[in-house]
């Protein structure tokens, strides 16, 4: 696999998998209004995943975006493990999404400066969406954090539970290094400081304590996952796998 192909696939996979998780909320939201809001975010992410997968498929030359989404095993998926974590209760989902939105804002701001025109164009479009997603999740974090005692406890636990998965946002490996050197990719390591202060600001407002960076989970760049991805894929890919000759 070419480096650029892999680089794009990693971004695409995180987007696709977290979109999939959000889509599981459909008909289960705490209010009907929020059901619609979560579907909107999921659709934005799905659109972005589609654009990125198409680009990756184009570089590959022999595959389609659908092949990439529906015909790879979990070991060939490179999404952040944060994205595959279960929806849990509404607070778990909001925290997962909020942390990812903060990362995405900073990441796509940098990627919009990429020398690669396609990546830059996708990023510019994505940024508009991300700003809204972050506005939405930011509002929820504050309301749940500063709502009732129960909601504060619940969402603090959500935060404590998922924190160890945020380390992957800021890792770089040899593939990344080459792409960064070519001024196409983003040096994720450099995003950590801004991400911390973005997250800190909201957590303080929400009366939540930021967990420490310890026992951080790693591995997704090599296709290592928590086992949850396997469940997602067995559901998501069930039709193309069961009927390989069918066209949908």
């Amino acid at each position: 696999m070419q480096d650029l192909e892999k680089y794009i696939l990693r971004i695409a996979d995180s987007t696709l998998i977290i979109s999939h998780r959000l889509s599981e909320w459909c008909s289960k939201g705490p209010t009907l209004e929020e059901d619609i809001a979560l579907a909107n975010i999921s659709l934005d992410l799905l659109g972005r995943a589609n654009a990125l997968l198409e680009y990756s498929a184009k570089i590959n030359g022999n595959k389609t975006a659908n092949d990439l989404a529906f015909r790879r095993d979990d070991r060939e998926f490179y999404n952040f493990q944060l994205c595959e974590q279960e929806n849990g209760h509404f607070g778990d989902t909001i925290i997962r999404q909020f942390l990812y939105d903060c990362f995405s804002l900073l990441f796509f701001q940098e990627l919009s400066k990429s020398k690669d025109e396609t990546l830059s164009a996708i990023s510019i479009k994505s940024l508009k969406e991300i700003k809204y997603h972050l506005r939405h999740t930011h509002n929820w974090v504050i309301r749940l954090g500063d709502g009732t005692e129960t909601s504060n406890q619940k969402i603090q636990e959500s935060l404590n539970k998922i924190w160890k998965f945020t380390g992957e946002f800021f890792e770089t490996d040899d593939v990344d290094k080459k792409i960064i050197e070519n001024k196409i990719g983003v040096d994720n390591k450099k995003l950590k400081k801004d991400w911390d202060s973005l997250v800190d600001k909201v957590l303080t407002e929400a009366k939540l304590k930021k967990p420490e960076d310890k026992d951080m989970i790693t591995g997704s760049k090599e296709g290592i996952h928590t086992g949850l991805l396997e469940n997602i894929l067995s559901e998501m890919q069930c039709l193309p796998r069961a009927y390989p000759d069918a066209k949908w």
């Binding site: 209010t31 209004e33 619609i36 809001a37 509002n139």
Partner: peptide, 17 residues
């Protein structure tokens, strides 16, 4: 209409719906 408890969420809910 939409249901919401404060103006910011009302605005967002209206936007989404």
């Amino acid at each position: 209409n939409v249901h919401a408890e404060d103006k910011e969420m009302a605005l967002q809910n209206a936007r989404d719906l």
